[in-house]
């Protein structure tokens, strides 16, 4: 495996970005990251992005955003209809081939523009489930009750996750939910979707993220402290809720295994957990113990930008390693109902 590192990252998340189009939102971030490593678009070997037409309410919505990269002259480029973490994966694969040394990755979403609950209902089985229009919160609430009934977790543990996310998010300028709240106060919240409380739910945000990857010596040239991707893997579970064991996240377990999470101590983990229940399950799936700090940024509970949230987890983890907050981290991205699809990567400093 060729050594590939994160050498540049920028993000922006706000509760609502109404007055800027997707490309207007992204172009300053793109420009900023390229400048930070001294590269122009024409220096970059491969570009890949992730976004969703359904979220944007427009077919071929990514075509509007490509202009932000400055694709004149033409660039080598691709797009996944997935969270940006999978665009990162595609770029990492291209770097593994060995023909190129740098890659540019971005993703974005503005869920405030549409009814996200309706949008996500169209992600469900089109014959049996989508016609009933269940929303994503209800689907996760079904999982939450299964977990609570099974005794694997109790409401206090979930409230502790929510409270800790808020505390961590206090230091994160991109968080949209960072006001401190005690476990007791969270437990006193009326249910949003019984058995989930408002603090159990993601804080939806608009925004985007941009990342530059580089291989080997090129990474060292571009950056004082490159953050190396030591392992990366992604897996998908069955789609039908009725056939899945919703009290675990099997695809995340497999991905974590292949990414090598358990090979050494994980100092901290950035998990793309939109719900407190998802964070609980992911910590278990990745085999994290009490020594690992989970979601130092506050995670998706503090700011959840659909289509970028996974890439932002990787960026958050890389930024912290770069700052010397730890040596080895796990970053995770998910997609689909009840985290059907999961990506795990292990990041290390030099």
């Amino acid at each position: 495996m060729r050594d590939v590192a994160v050498v540049g990252f920028a993000q922006r998340q706000e509760a609502e970005i109404a007055d800027e189009s997707e490309v207007e939102l992204m172009v300053p971030l793109m420009d900023q990251v390229k400048k930070s490593v001294g590269l122009s678009q024409q220096d970059i070997g491969f570009t890949c992005s992730g976004s969703s037409d359904f979220l944007a309410g427009q077919a071929f919505s990514f075509v509007m955003t490509i202009d932000g990269t400055g694709p004149v002259p033409p660039i080598s480029e691709s797009h996944v209809e997935m969270d940006g973490a999978w665009a990162l994966y595609e770029a990492w694969v291209k770097l593994q081939i060995g023909d190129i040394d740098t890659a540019f990755v971005y993703s974005y979403g503005r869920p405030s523009r549409g009814s996200l609950r309706d949008v996500l209902a169209t992600q469900m089985d089109p014959y049996y489930v989508a016609p009933l229009w269940p929303d994503a919160f209800a689907i996760e609430a079904l999982r939450a009750r299964l977990l609570l009934d099974s005794g694997k977790v109790d409401e206090r543990q979930l409230a502790e996750i929510a409270s800790r996310s808020r505390a961590h998010a206090a230091g994160n300028p991109n968080a949209v939910r960072s006001s401190p709240k005690s476990v007791a106060d969270i437990l006193a919240e009326p249910f949003a979707v019984d058995p989930l409380r408002p603090s159990d739910l993601p804080a939806s945000a608009d925004g985007g993220a941009v990342m530059i990857l580089a291989a080997g010596d090129r990474a060292r040239e571009l950056c004082d402290r490159p953050v190396w991707i030591r392992g990366i893997d992604h897996r998908i579970d069955a789609h039908s809720l009725g056939v899945r064991d919703l009290t675990r996240v099997e695809s995340a377990e497999i991905a974590a295994h292949h990414a090598g999470v358990a090979d050494d101590k994980i100092d901290f983990a950035e998990l793309h957990a939109p719900f407190t229940t998802s964070e609980f399950l992911l910590a278990e799936a990745l085999g994290l113990d009490g020594d690992t700090v989970v979601n130092p940024s506050g995670g998706a509970l503090a700011a959840h930008t659909m289509m970028a949230s996974g890439l932002i987890r990787v960026g958050e983890a890389a930024t912290r390693i770069q700052a010397g907050d730890g040596d080895r981290a796990a970053a995770h991205a998910s997609s689909g109902p009840c985290m059907q699809q999961n990506l795990v990567c292990v990041l290390e400093g030099d």
């Binding site: 209809e81 997935m82 992600q123 089985d125 998908i236 789609h239 056939v243």
Partner: peptide, 21 residues
């Protein structure tokens, strides 16, 4: 169907494997 590949997981022998769209 938003990201219809998710629903196709069972049909394409993808359960437990990597899938890209």
């Amino acid at each position: 169907v938003m990201m219809p590949e998710l629903y196709l997981s069972e049909a394409l022998g993808a359960v437990g494997k990597p899938m890209l769209r």
